[in-house]
Amino acid sequence: MKAHEAHDDAQEWLGEEFDPAYFDIEHVNAMLGLDIEDFLPSSPVYEGTELAAMSESGLLDSLAENGDRVPRNLIDECARRGDAIWMNWSLCCKPGLTGMRQTMRPGGCRCMR
């Protein structure tokens, strides 16, 4: 296979220590002054009393709305309610044919939207 016509010049400019397989994203971001947290949405904050006042369907809706940014205390509140959360989820959703995939029942919660 023939190398690009500027290959030799580029290799000479990069030097012998150049490793095309090596890439350090943290080093590049630091050089550019970037922080990945600046690009991520912030996690919501729920007070304990706010969570305690939420219905089970409200808790499930909050889980769905927040996706992978769910705060720990929301998860803990759902776990604390255990069977009540499970019953609420099972009333609005039914298992699909492929493992964890879910199908919404009409008028159900938003937990799998």
Rank of each mutant, 00 (worst) to 15 (best):
T49P: 02
I36Y: 07
L14V: 06
V28Y: 08
Y46A: 01
P44G: 00
E12N: 12
G48N: 15
A21S: 15
A10S: 05
E50Q: 14
V28Q: 10
D35C: 05
E47Q: 12
H27M: 10
Y46N: 00
L14N: 10
M54C: 00
L34A: 09
Q11P: 00
E26C: 00
E50P: 01
H27Y: 08
E37F: 10
G33V: 06
D19C: 10
I25D: 06
E56F: 01
H27P: 00
M54A: 01
A30M: 05
F18P: 00
F39T: 04
D35A: 11
L34Y: 09
S55P: 04
E56C: 08
E16A: 13
P20D: 10
E12Q: 15
D38C: 08
L51K: 05
I36F: 07
M31Y: 06
A30D: 14
A30C: 02
E26Y: 02
A52M: 08
I25R: 11
E50L: 05
F23V: 09
Y46D: 00
E37Q: 14
E17S: 15
L32T: 03
V45N: 05
F39K: 09
I25V: 14
Q11E: 12
F18L: 03
S55K: 08
D24C: 09
A52H: 11
S43C: 05
V45I: 12
A53G: 05
E50R: 11
L14K: 11
D38L: 06
I25K: 11
A52D: 15
D38W: 09
V28C: 05
H27C: 01
D35Q: 12
G15Y: 11
S42Q: 13
H27T: 11
A10N: 09
E50S: 07
Y22H: 14
V45C: 01
D19W: 09
Y46Q: 03
Q11T: 07
D35W: 02
A21G: 03
M54W: 00
A10H: 07
D19S: 07
G48D: 15
T49N: 14
A30W: 05
S55C: 04
E17I: 10
Y46V: 02
Q11M: 15
P20N: 13
V45F: 03
W13V: 05
E16C: 02
I25W: 07
L34N: 13
S42D: 12
I36L: 12
Q11C: 10
F23C: 07
A53P: 03
G33L: 07
L34H: 11
W13C: 04
S55F: 04
L51E: 03
P20L: 10
D24K: 07
F18K: 07
M31H: 08
E26P: 00
G33N: 12
Y22Q: 12
A30V: 02
I25T: 11
E47N: 08
G33D: 09
L14Q: 10
Y46F: 15
E50C: 02
A53Y: 03
A52I: 08
S55Y: 04
W13G: 00
P41N: 04
E37R: 14
F39S: 07
F18I: 06
E12L: 13
E12S: 11
E47D: 14
M54H: 01
E12W: 09
G48L: 13
M54N: 00
V45M: 03
H27E: 15
E37A: 15
D38V: 05
E17D: 15
F39H: 08
